[in-house]
Design a binder for these strands. Sequence first.
RNA 1: GCCCGAGUGGUGGAAUUGGUAGACACGAAGGACUUAAAAUCCUUUGAUCAUUGCGAUCGUGCCGGUUCGAGUCCGGCCUCGGGUACCA
Length: 1036
Amino acid sequence: MDYNFNEIEKKWQDYWREHKIYKVDIDTSKPKFFVLDMFPYPSGAGLHVGHPLGYIASDIYSRYKRLKGFNVLHPMGYDAYGLPAEQYAIQTGTHPAITTEKNIARYREQLDKIGFSYDWSREVRTSDPKYYKWTQWTFIRLFESWYNKKAGKAESIASLIAEFENHGNSSIDAACSETPGFSALEWKIKSEKEQQELLMNYRLAFLANTMVNWCPELGTVLANDEVSEGFSVRGGHPVERKLMKQWLLRITAYSDRLLSGLDTIEWPESLKDIQRNWIGKSVGGSMLFDLSGKDEKIEVFTTRPDTIFGATFMVLAPEHELVQHITTSEQKQEVETYVKRTKNRSERERMSEVKKVSGAFTGAYALNPFTNKEIPVWIADYVLMGYGTGAIMAVPAHDSRDFAFARHFELPIVQVINQRGNEPSDPSLWEESYDSKEGILINSGQFNGLEVKKAILAIVGECENREIGHGKTNFRLRDAIFSRQRYWGEPFPIYYKEGMPYAMDEKQLPLELPAVDAYLPTEYGEPPLARAKNWQTTEGYPIETNTMPGFAGSSGYYLRYMDPQNTQEYFSKEAVGYWENVDLYMGGAEHATGHLIYARFWNMFLFDIGLAVKQEPFKKLINQGMIQGRSSMVYRANLEKMAEYLLWEQLKNKQLGVDFVQDFRDGRRKFDFFSEEAKLIIEVKRMGALEKLADYYIDYSNEKGYRLLLIPIREFVDDFQGIINKIKTAINGGDFPVFEEKEAFKAGNVFVSKNIRGREFFSDPIHTDISLVHNDILDTEGFKNWQPHLSNAHFILEDGKYVCGWEVEKMSKSKYNVQNPDELIEKYGADTLRLYEMFLGPLEQSKPWDTQGIEGVFRFIRKLWRLYHNEMNELSISEEKATKNELKALHKTIKKIEEDTERFSFNTAVSAFMIGLNELADLKCNKREILEPLTILISSYAPHIAEELWMLLGYNESVVIQQFPVLNESYLIEDTFSYPVSFNGKTRFKIDLPFTMDAKGVEEAVLHSEEAQKWIEGKSIKKIIVVPQRIVNVVV
RNA sequence: GCCCGAGUGGUGGAAUUGGUAGACACGAAGGACUUAAAAUCCUUUGAUCAUUGCGAUCGUGCCGGUUCGAGUCCGGCCUCGGGUACCA
């Protein structure tokens, strides 16, 4: 073989490893660049071709930046905690660490084969005690911190205690749980336990009773982003709401910073939008409503204070604490029934019944503070306890949900916003509410005539004056639940004294995960860690038995890469001062509301306490598109349908000289085909069916004087023309057998090629393994051997081939469309795989995996090899001076590669390499002056072949540490430009003119050109547009 | 429902700022080399009409607009993909 990629790639991978080519250290003489891939979870299935897409792109960029003189940090590690290994442990008893270790080894083997430039000396694993020591350490810091809103940052709990001791909590503005006011004196006389309880309201990592997403089948709670439509994202198990005591992280303290920080980073707009929606900031007001004849007040949150005059009723969440107090005795029964019903309904049921209006009247009335009218108070499950105050003022005229509710329960609707230019109308005639914020106020007392935005301010102002409300901002973002009732995760460095949690001393970290006898909850329903022996401190205090969730370890890992071996601190000041944050983060958009928001929060906290030096962890982020599977389909024929279809194609429209009808009926009898003219009945059936029915058919046709032809399906496969001939004979009055006995063939396995006419009428698509299909042509022998029941398959071919259909779907085992990179590397080599994955299309776009084009890239690589070699596969390099054309081809390529790599347009970069190589090959260029820069140029894309060629060129230092070739624009300057000349916008011909010619000259030249005459002839010229070095357009 | 994104040959895709639509590849067809195969090379390849050649017309999801000129900008729609959902 001319170009032996197997040998070459192995050789250089070994070389890179042995010479630690990709190891980086702090080097202040060079600018730094941090390129990071999202932490993979090493699953048992290994990598499929979708995973490396982003890794290849970031690797190319890393190598490119290195050639450009940057000191590039490009690490890799493993998000090693995770449910699959634990589920496997529960089933088999294998410790998750063993499974994980095995999976990591497999991942590493696959990654190495692709030739990545990772600095493996910096590898981290979340399950490694040396690593999770710092996860636990950060948790303690969070536990020992509170968020000072006045300072806009996290501060230590010690400062809070000092403040309490001096002033109580009256002047504190903190992100905290609901806490009653207390004075310094009151603080001091509280017991330690009481003080601890109060502090818990302020800590950034805190313990609280919360409604959680409980997944009984996984036996654990899940974060909001781990649940989708009432089912767990991993595994698809049902999830229910449950009140439990859990650790939470007060991420909501950072809502505003998480939101505004988005404006400072280069992320895809769609990803920022997802985060903005998730954070869900809404600005509005909080208002207090008096209750008729009661002391209690109801607080509501609204984004539309301007519509207060239209508030004709109120709605509380069924779980609202006031419900019991205010419900009248008459309504008690109804309310209790409703509350009970909502409680028992699963999340899932609630979701599916979104459009169904339901609710109950409490019997109580509130007072609208602006209209002073009594308005009824209802409960309904469309009001959620978890958002705002769990109570709303309902403005049916201007809120679609309130509108639907009012219609259903016949509650009054009052219009208070009028769209400019429209007349106010009777809301009882409306088909929908008017929700828009455009318009002016009506029916609103002294506020009439105000525009919505001004009215909001005016009414909030009025509420503040009357001390019944104030402006308020709400966030949709919830605090992050941080406990998991699981074994395979980081233990909390927390112990309990008198039931109150205390953080362990940092010196005791890492708190290592203990051994357990089984990975299941205890018989009392405690988490698996409760099974551990002596799970207590040396003083005998019990240690927390929950473990941390998956996002704990992945929230700060990028920082640890800066200084992964450090045993004294998370990372050194020096390291973080140099590497700062991630310059390019490559990964999937599916982490938008999980990892990417937690990591930003984690980093902001570390920034507040002086560890991180940048607010935002990931400066630029690119989402690589998903690689979808491209399934191949074969079409299994329904034989009877097929036979009937094929025959009808021949019989219809008098093709055989006589009229036929299909599905002829005579009373209750039905025949496939019948010709009155030829007095002929034709019936198509399986052999067995024909044998049974033959006598019956024969009797009938004899009685009627018809002739009969019974055709077994087998004949269609064996001899279709024979059938037609037989029918022709019958029509012409000749003799023919009614039917010939043939051996029946086994049912089912006849497959029709995709483009056989009528295929869609008589076949069903079935998935087949993509490894049996090449360029949509099925390997029929392989297919027969694929599964036992296919061994007797028959094929109906087109042009001697079986053509498969295809569909784009998720890559999955059950669809037989999983492609793993190992096979491709074996067949084509890693360089080809790398180039091909990039060549497939724009990085950010989702696309189906399809190996059809890989041959083209493989040809390119071999052509590159041949440029440096003669026919005998001997190195052949000329020392001659390069020609102008050769230099132009090279520098055009340099320019394009530089531009395209900078803007992550790797698919067009690969094209540019192909174009450049085609040009150089046409010029038969083997000159060192050209090939040396070309080798460096391609080394970031195809590093193995580049290293080999670089060595063959006579160097003994790796190509990856060379300088990127410098573009010399002077080689690109053209003497002439070929102007496309269009008339009325339609391009008609081209004309070569000097590059430097001015617009006037171009115009003259075009008008005097021979070809122009044809188009000008008989018409007058209205206008000529000349864009120098672009186009000429003549308007006639 | 709401918020994003995308619709270009048989296929993946290119066209970076409004300026030659279909680069580069795959596939297909034909040919050269070869005892043969592989590999390689050459020609054709958006559609329709014309075909001896010249060519002509249409064409970037659909309808309309702006412009000398629109795949690109604007308005309205259709389809597909992603996110999110009683968030007041």
